[in-house]
Design a protein around this nucleic acid. Structure first.
Lengths: 194, 194, 194, 194
DNA sequence: AATGAATGAGGATTCATTCAT
DNA sequence: GATGAATGAATCCTCATTCAT
């Protein structure tokens, strides 16, 4: 009697375990066995479901990006004004879920993965474009034609905050990160209006 | 009397080869043999001079950071005004030497190394602090007590630009990067004076 | 369901191969690959089952000691008189099984291993104590309170015979060895009774 | 100006260092570099003087055996009676010089070396024969035609004591060892005279 | 579906030995 | 005589991956 519907459960467990393992090691140097063990199954099964190590990593990436995207989308949906929309994006970027040291480490390593895997690069590019696109849309009413370049700057700021965070083992500084970006944003608006 | 004084030459060659190899692969997943071969020697000799793979990586890091620091210092030395000083820092950060895709990839991987090696983390922290310190010093006359936080933002922007660059295989956009940061800087100054 | 129960079989094969290989080389300088090959598997599997080279050696030691102990125990069990008990111990020590040049070489190398591995030293100490304990028990009725020191002498004699044997490539002299020790034993008894 | 007479000094230093190193490690797994370093020279020079690692070991063996032989010879020379002669041999065997844990470890490893090197085996055989020969000569007046087999037993006892000693890290028990052998010897004499 | 079994390939590291100076 | 320089050859160990059951 084959257990039905096991597949999505197994896959989810593996994805979760992958991120946890990368987060703990801080590296992509994790073995499939470690991941599988943490997910409560044999490494053979992990291969069975994903085909190979890179596929596992990519699935973890997709999941991380999807979670991030969903949160941003949700937050934007609740925003009423352009100002709130920007804030929603920024706060989501540094939310409890996304700015956990575990996840930050994963992001960092995804950038490394992107040096090697085309699909990984594609995924990160999608993220980058979506972030800028969201920002541009929210910024247009606030800074007009300067929106693209302002979006670029804010996006860079967000990424820079992640990189910084990756060095600070442990202590998470969501508030500071939000503050950092929002302050810049304020200046941008002021500069435009001034 | 044997052949003498080879050590510094070999070490330099290995450091150079390490950066090149990391840059080419985009990863720390390079073998000592690859590095040694590129440096024109046996892997045994590489071990003889450095003691191990991590030491080689750390030496490459120190070199990269030293080159960067030297260039910034030199540029700052030639600056007359605070404004020029900030510009000097930013331009050095994205100079031909430091913003080569090879070096950018190396930087990215040093952040990963810092997740694993205490010494690597220490080195990156020194870099981060020095960058902020330089910026604060230059910014004080321009934005007064806001200097620390402004420095923080500009530093994050620089790092963000590196991260972005790491995704763009090949094409180097020094000009755009400088522009990006300097524009933000302009806003900061304006915001302060306004 | 995968192929099951291979582990004990593999472990036994490896242990056997280890002793054979040490016996043939006369040294602990045998590679895991050699051992694994002789046992009909890859070196990777050997590592999988034992964790490392030292563990393999220790397992071989444990096996050798266990075989020896079992034989002694069996022989003692069949002995009726104290005299026969001593003879049983001595004869077992130089039995076909234990005094094979292969096994003698292994013993010798276990003494070397004991210089390096705590567990190996512990195992050899257990052997030494058990041998003396057995001898003491059998000797008590024969030599009374002198049993401990007589046991010590006989034990030393046994070990000395092994050492001597380790030099004689090939020719096994079980008879001579038994004779050597039993003669001494006779003197001890005579000396006590005289 | 070539330093004259350096060779014997260097060789002696290497031999001494070899024994010390083997004693410390408990194994023949010592590198030529370790030995050379301890002897205050480069490993290249060690090779220059001895030709290779095995030669170094053999030289250390020869030295150890020579020191032992000399001591025995000296002690025998001072003995007046057969009884004293036997005692001289036994005491020399467990003298301060020869029964040091360092030297005991070396002896043990020489037996291993003898499994591999013909010359080493030859040397140990010479030792064995000389010991028996000395004992026979001293024993003849005491036990008559039984001298050969008695010599055999006493020799085995001596070797067994060494083996036992090799397990007792540190504590040296010369007295006990002498006592052990001499007691057996007493029995042999008594048995013969009885 | 699931996993124990099994391995080939590779990689860091060590070391005896040689050589040029 | 003496040594830094240099390497080829090993060796242990790890791991992704495959397969039979």
């Amino acid at each position: 009697m084959p257990k039905l519907g096991m597949e999505p459960i197994r896959r989810a467990a593996l994805v979760k375990a992958t991120i946890a393992e990368i987060g703990e090691t801080g590296t992509l140097d994790v073995t499939v066995s470690q991941i599988a063990k943490r997910a409560g199954m044999s490494s053979a099964l992990a291969h069975h479901y994903f085909g190979g190590k890179e596929q596992i990593f990519l699935a973890a990436m997709r999941h991380t990006l999807a979670v991030y995207a969903a949160e941003v989308r949700g937050a934007i949906g609740m925003a009423a004004t352009p100002m709130e929309r920007v804030e929603a994006i920024v706060k989501s970027s540094f939310s409890q879920t996304n700015f956990r040291s575990e996840v930050v480490a994963a992001w960092l390593n995804f950038y490394v993965l992107a040096q090697v895997s085309d699909e990984a690069r594609r995924l990160l590019n999608v993220y980058q474009m979506r972030l800028r696109s969201n920002l541009r849309f929210a910024l247009r009413p606030l800074v007009g034609p300067a929106a693209p370049e302002v979006a670029e700057r804010i996006a860079a700021l967000v990424d820079g905050a992640y990189l910084k965070q990756s060095l600070g083992r442990g202590e998470i500084a969501q508030g500071a990160a939000v503050e950092l970006v929002m302050q810049s944003f304020a200046h941008e608006v002021a500069a435009h209006q001034g």
